[in-house]
Design a protein around this nucleic acid. Structure first.
Lengths: 241, 241
DNA sequence: TGATGTGAACTTTTTCACAGCT
DNA sequence: AGCTGTGAAAAAGTTCACATCA
């Protein structure tokens, strides 16, 4: 099976819902959402682009441009209404709908994910668990019984799974991926260290520990002279408790 | 500009500050490395840019440009010697040195990471585990006893930890981060859903489950009409075993 | 007055296309 | 004949700077 290459045709205006949101902006919007949620909990009702950008670690112009993809919901001279903004970002990210999640591969990581239960920031209920190991099948993990991977297509279709999370060893990832796709799953979060081949209408996000560590290694390598920072410039270390 | 390697390629390999490698290229190089390693295991000794790019899911021109940051180690009309290329990429990414890793927060995820033992693709030995929970302190997880977070600065300095992995709840992440920095750790992999504030000489990589799910949600939302793909276009499903 | 929203400038990244080796 | 390596073009993304409006 071949990868990507979505044939864009001469039709210049293929406007779906709103303006096309740049790839990079989508990720940042998710971050603004988190910052906003946390600020709202602290009773903050209004924030300027400067404040929000600072908390999210981006330039304020970038933030304003990102928000402009969502629409114009700020007030000049004042800032953004936190609650209103959250609402609109959630709308844009499609978080008003629930996304049923299946976790495949109940090893260390899969176990950890299954135990999150509702998954970070609710809205992503885990409704199916799969593993190859016959001994695991039927055993409840985080309150949900494990099914056999062979049943992925039926179970995913039946439970209307929209997001599949692959936590299997690399060797099984592609097959599992194919099974998820056969089950109608079009969004995949892949923790296995392989590049998955999928049809062009399937979106894959990769979370790759090895790659992250190697990137850190790169920056460490081309840091000043010493391999490690010298002796710790010890902080007035607060005691955690 | 760059030190062009005229004559033979046996120039002093010591010139660390080679051409500035673009951020984006570093991540891809880590992927090429993995693909190459896996191909070598299958006995492949030579690959063209087209083949390698295909396997890594990138454009072949992008791949060649990325490899040009590493140096010119291909053979025109032939391709790249897989073994040689691996060697040079590892060199560039600083993988010839070991990077001692500390995992902080031995919950579900921390547990999973600690149990990887040597961490993906070896070269990243886990040498310290930390948690706030006094009951966990001293208990070995994956063969290594857990230390208390208060001892992070000393232990990290002592064991020469270069990479800190934060798996704590969001509320503890910043404090833990400060402790790691105090311990001389300059590379941090953050799994907690917060934006960490660090000195400019500290490199932070974020792995954010919630953000990944929300990005998938976004693409799902602006997909065709139906919320899910229709009935499964069932594959000739291979039985996993 | 003060902060948004956005065209324009700038920077980075990707892709093209082809000269130059093997 | 074929594939790399790279300048140059194109695209994507970021930042500036300011008109605009509550």
């Amino acid at each position: 099976m071949t990868v990507h290459q979505h044939g864009r045709y001469s039709t210049p205006v293929e406007d779906l819902p709103s303006r096309a949101v740049p790839e990079a902006a989508v990720g940042r919007l998710a971050i603004y959402l988190r910052v906003l949620t946390s600020m709202i909990e602290q009773g903050v009702t209004t924030m300027s682009s400067e404040e929000l950008a600072g908390a999210a670690g981006v330039n304020s112009a970038t933030l304003r441009k990102d928000l402009s993809y969502v629409g114009s919901y700020g007030t000049r001279g004042v800032g953004y209404d936190t609650a209103k903004l959250v609402e609109h970002i959630e709308q844009l990210l499609g978080l008003t709908r629930h996304h049923s999640v299946a976790v495949v591969g109940i090893g260390n990581l899969g176990h950890a994910l299954a135990n999150y239960g509702g998954f970070p920031d609710r809205g992503f209920p885990v409704t199916a668990l799969f593993d190859v190991d016959e001994d695991l099948v039927g055993i409840p993990v985080g309150g949900l019984p494990v099914d056999h991977v062979n049943t992925i297509p039926e179970v995913c279709a039946e439970r209307e799974v929209t997001i599949g999370v692959i936590c299997t060893p690399a060797s099984a990832a592609q097959i599992v991926c194919d099974l998820l796709v056969a089950g109608g799953v079009r969004c995949i979060l892949n923790f296995a260290p392989v590049m998955l081949q999928v049809p062009s209408d399937v979106e894959v996000r990769r979370v790759d520990l090895a790659v992250e560590l190697q990137i850190l290694s790169f920056y460490q390598a081309r840091r000043s002279p010493g391999p490690r920072a010298g002796a710790a410039p010890v902080d007035p270390v607060a005691v955690i408790r």
